[in-house]
Design a protein around this nucleic acid. Structure first.
Lengths: 204, 204, 204, 204
DNA sequence: GATGAATGAGTATTCATTCAT
DNA sequence: GATGAATGAATACTCATTCAT
């Protein structure tokens, strides 16, 4: 990595954090350079435009999440565990601040949308391979794997990464996953114990 | 309806159209009033702010789509047909211009997101009632109906209302729907014939 | 008073209160009519313009303060007591809310300035008569009475009605008043006991 | 002084002039930049807001007037002459245009008020030192000097810098000043000859 | 590699006032 | 006397981007 690259990486990290915390639209270039303690010119030396910077930030997020997914695949764990691991890798890596839901506040919709689009696109083949592994092991029985995987990713993201969810949501998700993949009942029920209950809505 | 209300409705329709065509962020108040041929003050007489207008536009869309769903429920058709009808009602009513994908261009993400959130919230109980009807008829067999319905709505929206889809997507969607509701295989396969193939991506 | 006049007086009172609390510039006609529960048209039926309303509000304030001064003159008290009484009448009549210093916040400067100008203009002849009375009684000895009175009013207002003042300010004020009017030392020292010490700044 | 500072000083001078001529509220940012021949952005690059610019303009005025007062103090003239000199320094430095009374038109009240407040605050200690000098010389005899000085400044400002004044006003002012400071009669009477009679109102 | 002064089109919002009913 | 819908000029401020040094 060249010398200039280092500065650029720093900038990306700062921007990533600010975009996540305050939203892309609500973060001005002025605010970024102020926090990074650099001049306007320096910013535009590294990035063609703010929008192009967003793309790079998103790529950075995707890369880190994809890498995590690839690590999971290479791990010596069961196929169902790999599935859950990859689904979990979709969760936005939490920064120092407890931001949680800021990603879903209207002002952050744009970035969230872009990340989700790209993430589903990159995770689909990875997760498909895992499913195929499961099919080969006789654990699952299904066709049209990529299409099933896409649905799995969408539902998982919508259920667990956006806002809160209930205990029933978990049960239905498990049931749906098993049926979608043609797995025997109970195959995926271990998910329940893994769920971070802190995001679960209080039972009234 | 009072005299002032009429003008307001006109404005809402114009804004609805413009927000859909060019996106909320890209539509300036100046452009709206120019097209509506009214003065700046008139706009702000009727709406507190541009954002509040967006809320009203969205409510208008939701209302029309909810109404459509309610009509479908009251129709003398089979339960599976009702389901498909309600799912279809989530599609944005096409205006005169052929806009199609503009709703999913980044600039429209905000409005799309807000509409989707509200729509799922309002359609869930309506569709749940239909599913219960199906359960009573012995057509379906499942618990946690609202949770299943929510997933159905999410998947249906993500599959058919966002971008393009393939033939396999349809098959998997049918399969998943049947399994999610505990229906016999083939119950929902009639969906395939109803799908507007013009949205289907060309087979490569 | 005619029927329409009553409504107008109500409006003036409301405006007086709002101008005092939030400042003239910061109070919009919309806010006034909203609080008064009347229509825009009604407002402009009673007042030619917002500025003309300000004049009327100020006249109202002046009138009430002038009236107070005239009552004091007719009272059966000593001349020095009358002087102090009239000087005190310059203090803005406190409304229900404890506003105090709002009159001196930048946004209220305009109204404060106008009131002060008019008040000095109307109080000068009244107070001059009292001083003449004192001269006749042999209590004071001075010429150019109106000019001295004007200075007295200015100093009194600047010292006691704007912000805070110290004990020394009181002493100097007493001293200056006596010398300005050619009174014997001690004639006005009773003022010290009358001062509302709540406005006095804490001794450090 | 840096390069950027120069442009800023230019802007301040232009604004100073415009605020004085047309009033702060009546001078729009658009008008300022048009006269300065700069872009909107340049204006906001140098000033956070119009209000903050006002503060800087005022500080500029205060500085120039304080500096004048300090020069007077160091001059080799008598104490009474110094006093008059400092009191004169409160007068707004006349710009090229003959503006005179614009400072006291309602629209200028805000700036005038702010300047007066700050000026009294900064001039009080300076003038107090001069008075102490006079006390040491045996010319004056008084205590509570800062309080007396404040009153002197207020009266002087109100009498000579706001609107017009009469011959009697001058006499009373001289008398009051002498008594306030405990000076011998006649000590300050030389003031009469120094007064710029052009501001004096015609004798009717 | 880095700086920071300059740009200018773009934006939402305010508000006193009018007038037909 | 009273209403309230309509007006439109005015205004402060934002912000991504450029470029000479």
């Amino acid at each position: 990595m060249k010398k200039g690259e280092k500065r650029k990486q720093e900038l990306l990290k700062i921007a990533y954090d600010m975009f996540l915390t305050r939203g892309y639209e609500n973060t001005s270039v002025d605010e970024i350079i102020e926090r990074a303690q650099i001049a306007k010119g320096t910013y535009y030396y590294h990035f063609q435009s703010k929008e192009q910077m967003l793309e790079e930030v998103i790529d950075m997020m995707i890369d880190s999440e994809t890498e995590m997914a690839e690590q999971i695949i290479r791990m010596d764990i069961t196929v169902p565990q790999k599935i859950v691991g990859i689904l979990s890798s979709m969760k936005p890596a939490e920064t120092e601040q407890p931001i949680k839901d800021t990603l879903f506040k209207p002002e952050n919709v744009l970035m969230h949308y872009k990340v989700r689009q790209k993430l589903i696109y990159t995770l689909t083949p990875l997760l498909s391979d895992v499913i195929k592994e499961g099919v080969n092991e006789g654990l699952f029985e299904c066709d049209n794997i990529p299409e099933r995987v896409k649905m799995l990713l969408i539902i998982s993201d919508a259920t667990f990464n956006e806002g809160t969810f209930s205990e029933q949501d978990i049960f239905v998700f498990i049931d749906m996953t098993e049926k979608l993949l043609g797995a025997e009942k109970g195959t995926m029920s271990f998910i329940y114990d893994l769920i971070d209950k802190s995001d679960m809505e209080a039972v009234e």
